[in-house]
Write a protein that binds this DNA or RNA. Structure first.
Lengths: 191, 191
DNA sequence: GTCTATACACCGATAGAC
DNA sequence: GTCTATCGGTGTATAGAC
């Protein structure tokens, strides 16, 4: 059953170039365009070379996503060490550098078990880290958040920024100014 | 340039069966599976018949989405006439009957101009209707929502329910109980 | 209105030469 | 490590017979 194909190392210049190319294609053209041919072209190599470094396309997509989550968790750790994690988080959420790419992975998760599991692992872990940092800032500032628990705050900040970004990308602006004003007010309550 | 292909009527039993089949495929298998072959199979007709009723696959997808938004707006109008539109909206958002399907159209909007425009039209229109109804309920009950304007409430209710649904479908539950408790509390403030 | 036949591009994946 | 060659399958779309 096993294929006789040779496989290359997991961390070489070319394999990393393929991961970079995959990110670019996903970000700019969506996952429907993330084919071995398109990605190879983007990386400047032949299509078949993709299969020297990755067993299947699913494996390449998963490897691309896992590299991203590893980096994102590292970045998150640094951000939560800042003095005002709540403001830092909000700024990061709304910067939208990777909103498009993250959305593609969310869509991919629907039909890719490995990515779905990694999304679940990543979201669960990062939400715990965020909640803890938010709780710490509130406690330090002597703020009683009432029914808005730190976890709720983390969830709402994330989901509001997510939809604002999605809608903006779709050409929708209805109500966005009021929502931003509200978030401004809410964040002001934490000081 | 124009093709010599004959085209069928826009509203026949078969064309509606194709729209139904498209919805089912999108809902259960995602938009990558929404091919003419798969949809025809689902509708129990030959692949080529799709092109008798729709010029292109993009046109079929757009027609499917437009039928949905028309029905959704009709449903929304009925819901907003209820006595407690806020609770009715929240119940509808969290019922998630069509969460999966709606998400597929959001993803499709990324690379389908027609769907993107229809999403924008639909979201803008429904948000205005929701805001108006929410404002009316608050006024009737003599509630001052403070910084949470009716539009903000409509946006937050929608985006919280959207992410709760997405995450649940991905196997994530972290913090969901707290978020639901918070929404319960917030909705209680409107009475 | 639905069928058969068919064109042509692109897909994932494998094998083996260089 | 990268290339050429190649397979079987699937995609959109068209033309014309029944």
């Amino acid at each position: 059953m096993a294929s006789k194909r040779r496989m290359g190392p997991q961390d070489s210049a070319t394999s990393n170039a393929l991961l970079d190319a995959t990110e670019r294609v996903l970000r700019e053209e969506g996952y429907a365009a993330a084919t071995s041919r398109r990605i190879a072209q983007e990386a400047g190599v032949k299509q078949q070379l993709v299969y020297y470094y990755f067993r299947t396309m699913d494996e390449l997509l998963l490897a691309t996503f896992k590299r991203r989550t590893a980096r994102a968790l590292e970045k998150l750790e640094n951000q939560l060490e800042q003095e005002r994690p709540i403001e830092t988080l909000w700024q990061d959420f709304t910067s939208r550098v990777d909103a498009r790419l993250n959305f593609e992975f969310m869509a991919l998760a629907n039909r890719h078990e490995g990515i779905r599991e990694e999304v679940a692992r990543f979201v669960t872990l990062s939400r715990r880290m965020q909640s803890e940092a938010i709780g710490r800032q509130l406690k330090d500032n002597g703020v009683d958040p009432g029914p808005v628990t730190p976890t709720t705050a983390a969830f709402v900040m994330y989901c509001v920024s997510l939809l604002l970004g999605r809608e903006a990308a779709t050409g929708i602006t209805e109500g966005h100014d009021e929502v931003l004003a509200f978030m401004d007010w809410a964040l002001g309550q934490t000081r």
